[in-house]
């Protein structure tokens, strides 16, 4: 087990390395000079050269990469060009804001979608099944920004139940903070629920066809025992993998939803940094996102044997 974890973490190293190089090179392929952007109209060639030297932009690309990567290995992700804040605390702060929304949304979506998908499969072709499949298709077909706008329109503007834009941190005012994240959570929850219902239904259908389900019925077990004791664990595997992928994706950035609800999350930080050509922040964000993705999938893989003893950690 420990050996496996160690091996998996080691295997993530090349991924992160490739990611670092790609990110570094790609950003510099985009036209635009951060020094010029910062100085704006006041730029004189002398002040520009001075600033470029201070930011290290006058060095060759390999040297710049070497310096940056060396610092990263020491845990120093640099200083933001625009805000002069250290990058790592900045990224972590913003990440927790996004992660809170994402984790609650995905947890709720899984809690609803997995049983819903199983019931739809159990009553295949019935009215219930038709309704659930229709609902799922509708939910995942609606783009999140549109769904977010609709929620803003109805719950915020028309009914006035929830605050429309902005963000309050939990340390300031927990109740207000809760009110502010209801709509973003709901947006993601509804969308991902659609995706997960379909997966849960499909994998349950697959399992319900197998002989051990008939065998369980032939033993005289009740339908709920058949469904929850025998079908659930076996049908949950594929859905679990999908939950991992969804989580990895969303944690990596929900820029669209954050923009709609003006939440200062990781996605917004990245988008703003790209516009400002804030190289250290972009690099820090992307590297962190890649790391989160690898970490989430590692956790998902490690937990897989819980549902399927045929899969061992080796």
């Amino acid at each position: 087990m420990l050996h496996f974890v160690f091996k998996r973490i080691l295997m993530a190293v090349p991924t992160l390395l490739i990611m670092a190089v790609t990110v570094f090179v790609l950003i510099r392929l985009i036209p635009g000079d951060p020094a010029a952007l910062m100085l704006g109209d006041l730029a004189t060639p002398a002040s520009l050269a001075d600033l470029r030297e201070r930011l290290g932009l006058d060095q060759s690309l390999p040297v710049q990469f070497g310096i940056w990567f060396g610092n990263v290995l020491r845990g120093d992700f640099g200083i933001s060009i625009t805000s002069s804040q250290p990058v790592l605390p900045l990224v972590l702060d913003r990440f927790w804001i996004s992660a809170r929304v994402v984790l609650i949304a995905v947890l709720l979506a899984s809690l609803f979608a997995v049983p819903a998908g199983m019931i739809a499969a159990w009553r295949q072709n019935s009215g219930t099944d038709l309704f659930l499949v229709g609902l799922a298709t509708l939910l995942y077909s609606i783009p999140t920004f549109w769904l977010g706008l609709l929620l803003l329109l109805f719950l915020g503007l028309q009914l006035n139940w929830l605050p429309v834009v902005g963000y309050v941190s939990f340390s300031e005012d927990p109740w207000a903070a809760l009110l502010y994240i209801v709509m973003p959570v709901m947006t993601l929850f509804l969308h991902e629920m659609g995706v997960l219902i379909r997966m849960s239904r499909a994998s349950t259908l697959e399992v319900l066809r197998l002989d051990y389900i008939t065998h369980a019925r032939a033993k005289g077990l009740s339908e709920s025992a058949v469904l929850w004791r025998h079908a659930f664990k076996n049908a949950f595997g594929p859905t679990w993998t999908l939950i991992g992928l969804v989580l990895g994706n969303l944690l990596g950035g929900i820029a669209v939803v954050e923009t709609v609800f003006t939440i200062p999350g990781l996605g917004r930080l990245l988008v703003d940094a790209i516009f400002a050509r804030d190289y250290p922040v972009i690099q820090g964000c992307l590297l962190f996102v890649a790391f989160v993705y690898v970490a989430v999938n590692l956790v998902v893989d490690l937990l897989y044997p819980v549902f399927d003893p045929r899969v061992t950690a080796e």
């Binding site: 002989d211 051990y212 369980a216 032939a218 005289g220 025998h230 664990k233 399927d308």
Partner: peptide, 24 residues
């Protein structure tokens, strides 16, 4: 019917690979 199933009538299936629950 459930009391009859298993209790009075038992059933053995063809495919030993799929007739036992793999996760139990």
């Amino acid at each position: 019917l459930r009391e009859l199933r298993g209790g009075r009538i038992g059933m053995v299936f063809q495919e030993p690979m799929t007739s036992l629950n793999p996760s139990m």
